[in-house]
């Protein structure tokens, strides 16, 4: 399945007195990788979590495939959207293979089909199912665990992927190769990907388009080239130059 469109319309969200998102409007096209780039606390993670309703908006609307997320049952919505986070959140008491096939299990796939799917997904992210499938997550390296996290997010063939700093806990070299592999993987699968990072280099490496987020709003949206050539304001320029 290729991706679906995700749109935010005038979305507002506050936690207590603090307004973290202020009338944000953004469109993610089907099949594109859109990176939300910004410093910590700018609201980018909240924006991502609105999509699978881990957070609900105070005002405005979020749409997945043209349907407003508020109209979905959250459980059903989440099973159709892959989710990968920093720290990965693998279940330590399950094998790697069982971790990968968790969403298919929730969807009621039979064990044979799940095992097959887990093996296929592990190969897709560059792990050998025979070597790694039966191990426990704590027997893998950090980079391998992140791959398992990506495999798990992809296992039920979701229409979209949400990724929150999914390569955050890896050393720079491992990180670079994960990024490159993810780049070609996302090109091949044509999923809609919303990817959160504070790392400018990572954003430029992975994105079809980048949305720069600051103070609860979007400062600029454009291809990496557009943003590098014509930063919209001093903040965006500062952010990119800070990384250069």
């Amino acid at each position: 399945m290729t991706g679906v469109a995700i749109s935010f319309r005038e979305v507002t969200k506050s936690f207590g007195d603090k307004r973290v998102l202020d009338r944000v409007t953004l469109d993610v096209s089907p099949g594109e990788v859109l990176v939300l780039l910004g410093r910590s606390g700018c609201g980018k993670t909240t924006l991502l979590r609105l999509v699978n309703r881990l957070v609900d908006a105070d005002g405005g609307g979020v749409f997945v495939g043209g349907r407003e997320v508020a109209d979905w049952d959250p459980v059903e919505l989440r099973r159709g959207i892959g989710y990968a986070i920093q720290g990965v959140g693998l279940l330590p008491h399950l094998s790697v293979g069982d971790n990968v096939s968790l969403v298919p299990r929730l969807l009621g796939w039979n064990p044979d089909r799940r095992r097959e799917r887990a093996a296929e997904m592990l190969r897709l992210v560059g792990l050998d199912p025979r070597e790694h499938g039966d191990r426990r997550p704590d027997q893998l390296s950090g980079g391998q665990r992140q791959r398992v996290g990506v495999a798990r997010a992809l296992a039920a063939d979701p229409q979209a992927l949400l990724m929150d700093e999914p390569f955050g806990a890896v050393d720079p070299i491992g990180r670079r190769s994960l990024q490159e592999e993810f780049r070609s993987l996302s090109r091949e699968l044509r999923k809609t990907v919303l990817f959160v990072t504070h790392d400018v280099t990572e954003a430029f490496r992975l994105a079809d388009r980048i949305a720069v987020v600051a103070d609860g709003g979007i400062r600029q949206v454009g291809t990496p080239g557009e943003i590098a050539d014509a930063p919209a304001d001093a903040l965006v320029r500062g952010l990119i130059e800070g990384a250069a």
Binding site: L54, R78, I85, H93
Partner: peptide, 27 residues
Amino acid sequence: VDPAILDAANGMGMTDWQRLTLVEVPL
């Protein structure tokens, strides 16, 4: 139980009961 694990469990679409039986009780 590690909040990252709970976040992942919620994010992958577990019901509360599934989260309890598949994640929280075993851990």
